[in-house]
């Protein structure tokens, strides 16, 4: 598929001497060098530094002590809290997002386009405005809190707090559900009528259709959605920080604290160890995502 004209220019010049191989390779790959260099400097080297630093003690000697500390005590607790937050958020977002996507996909025209663009916006919303919007809603003086109080349901008296894992799970839905909707909208719309009609004509009820045909076909997309949402929830920092100012024990927050020096000095490599932990979790999620995408595209040819 490479342009034959450009190829011909490179290779077929009988009169001129053959170009040195290095020159030709440069002509071919030259264009991607800036891109690769950029990724190297701003992504790969920092990631590498975190990786190495996790196994280095403060005087540069190889050690596992960072990892040990990172996976014990308060830090272990933050991993647990992060997982709780992520898993809880994911379960809700996947289910609600899927149902919402079904409803949206079945809608025609303008409302559907509106939802699509709003979902794009919401999925990319920085966490800060969101945090404050929810303070106004479910905070101590939030409107919903007040309305529920007047109905006799005193949220904060029963131990609920917006500034907790549960609270964050609710707030996170605001940008996680749109992600699920965006992921599922395409695949749901790609369900062929022929499949639905074939299934019905073979005797399947509507429920049976979803169970035997619809959901299985959508399962790769559902899996990708789940994975993306999990990674998103796990890595989210801004919202939690804006709401709790670093007091809630979550892994990203802990790292942030270490960076801004809110914790005792001399623990730089501990941060790297925590960072390594995050990379591993999110990288695993990304791998599952890529694999499930490939499987999905095979079917829907």
């Amino acid at each position: 598929m490479v342009s034959t004209l450009t190829r011909n220019r490179e290779e077929s010049s009988p009169s001129s001497p053959p170009r040195p191989r290095r020159r030709r390779a440069l002509r071919r790959y030259g264009g991607v060098v800036p891109y690769l260099a950029f990724l190297l400097i701003f992504l790969l080297i920092p990631a590498f530094s975190v990786l190495i630093g996790a196994f280095e003690s403060n005087d540069g000697k190889p050690t596992l002590s960072n990892l040990r500390v990172a996976l014990s005590g308060p830090y272990l607790h933050s991993f647990v809290a992060s997982f709780e937050l992520s898993i809880g958020s994911t379960i809700i977002a996947v289910i609600v997002g899927f149902i919402a996507a079904l409803a949206v996909a079945a809608t025609r025209g303008r409302p559907r386009a509106l939802v699509q663009s709003s979902s794009s916006v919401l999925a990319n919303t920085g966490g800060v405005p969101l945090a404050f919007a929810f303070i106004a809603t479910l905070g101590n003086f939030g409107i919903v809190t007040k309305i529920l109080s007047s109905m006799g349901i005193h949220l904060y008296a029963h131990g609920f707090s917006l500034y907790s894992v549960i609270g964050l799970i609710i707030v996170y839905q605001y940008f996680l559900i749109p992600v699920m909707i965006l992921v599922m909208l395409g695949p749901i719309q790609n369900i062929r009528s022929a499949w639905v009609e074939a299934a019905r004509s073979l005797g399947a009820s509507k429920v049976r259709f979803w169970w035997s045909v619809g959901l299985p076909i959508l399962s790769p997309a559902i899996l990708s959605g789940t994975v993306v949402i999990f990674a998103d929830a796990f890595a989210a920092y801004a919202t939690a920080e804006a709401l709790t100012s670093g007091t809630l024990p979550l892994v990203p927050i802990q790292i942030g604290n270490l960076i801004s020096g809110n914790v005792a000095a001399g623990q730089g490599n501990l941060g790297n160890a925590l960072g390594l932990g995050m990379i591993v979790v999110v990288a695993l999620a990304a791998t599952v995502y890529v694999l499930s995408q490939r499987r999905a595209s095979r079917w829907l040819r």
Binding site: R192, A194, W195, E197, A198, A199, S201, I217, W299
Partner: peptide, 15 residues
């Protein structure tokens, strides 16, 4: 209705 239908294209369940 118990009728057999063959559609125009690609109606086999892909999974």
């Amino acid at each position: 209705r118990n009728m057999g239908i063959v559609f125009q294209h690609y109606s086999l369940f892909p999974h």
